[in-house]
């Protein structure tokens, strides 16, 4: 991976991470000694086919799942050995999430959903920042609506706003455009890219869609639990080429 430039720390990193599910016959090794550093202020995509371990890696990096071996850091915090309470606190203060679906609480309005992590932590959101996020996402006239009154794209934009509003160290987006039509998907991805470029927000996108990955500054390819390749400043074509090459490797 190489070392970071002077004065720059990784927003999150995995050091020789192994993840093994089950024992004996049913044993599945999802990650085999993964090393990855997520640079601060960058938009990183983690790509790979189904079963490559990309979701597992994200869960481990985000403190949702414990690693079998190795170390995970978010900022300077070492996740190993943290109890549930500390992990929960870490998630709500240093991590933001955007899932593929079931992102919002149906009982709360869009605005309440956006402010939810802050409210849970008992903190007040920074009004200016909140307004900026809301306006950038074009949600101003949707704030009082409930999720059931929003389109899928709008719902994901609300989820984006929620993930960003507390200015976490890292935002993890797990296939956020998987359920969206291409236009809505493009809007969400463009917003994520801009958040990294304009506000220095670290973003990690987990996807199997080359087009989505092309929005990132850097793509990390995972296959069979290993980091197998990496691309900087990708385009849809270079991502696709890399994937074909990897497929051929795997098949060969």
């Amino acid at each position: 991976m190489g070392t970071m430039p002077e004065g720059m720390t990784a927003a999150a990193r995995a050091v020789d991470v192994w993840k093994v599910y089950g024992t004996g016959e049913a044993q599945v090794v999802a990650l085999r000694g993964v090393n990855v550093e997520l640079e601060r202020g960058r938009f990183t995509a983690i790509m790979g086919p189904s079963g490559s371990g990309k979701s597992t890696l994200m869960h481990c990096l985000a403190g949702l799942d414990a690693v079998t071996r190795g170390e995970v850091y978010i900022g300077e915090t070492r996740l190993a050995g943290l109890g549930d309470a500390r992990l929960t606190q870490l998630r709500r203060e240093q991590v933001g999430f955007i899932f593929q679906q079931f992102n919002l609480l149906p009982t709360l309005s869009a605005e309440e959903n956006i402010a939810l992590p802050m409210a849970i932590a008992g903190r007040k959101p920074n009004r200016e920042w909140l307004d900026a996020v809301i306006d950038t996402l074009g949600l101003r006239d949707r704030l009082r609506h409930r999720p059931s009154q929003l389109s899928g794209g709008q719902q994901q934009r609300v989820a984006c706003a929620r993930a960003l509003v507390s200015r976490p160290d890292v935002v993890f987006a797990d296939e956020p455009t998987g359920n969206l039509d291409s236009r809505s998907g493009a809007e969400v991805l463009a917003f994520l890219r801009n958040s990294a470029r304009e506000y220095g927000q670290t973003i990690v996108l987990v996807t199997h869609d080359p087009n989505a990955a092309s929005y990132a500054d850097r793509v990390v390819f995972l296959a069979d639990g290993h980091v197998v390749a990496e691309l900087r400043d990708p385009t849809a074509e270079t991502v696709l080429d890399t994937m074909k090459r990897l497929d051929a490797m795997v098949l060969g």
């Binding site: 929960t88 606190q89 079931f102 849970i120 932590a121 929620r162």
Partner: peptide, 16 residues
């Protein structure tokens, strides 16, 4: 279940 998972993911403590 999913909502609870989401809430836990975004930082709702067990006690909460």
């Amino acid at each position: 279940t999913r909502e609870l998972g989401l809430l836990r993911a975004i930082g709702l403590r067990r006690a909460q």
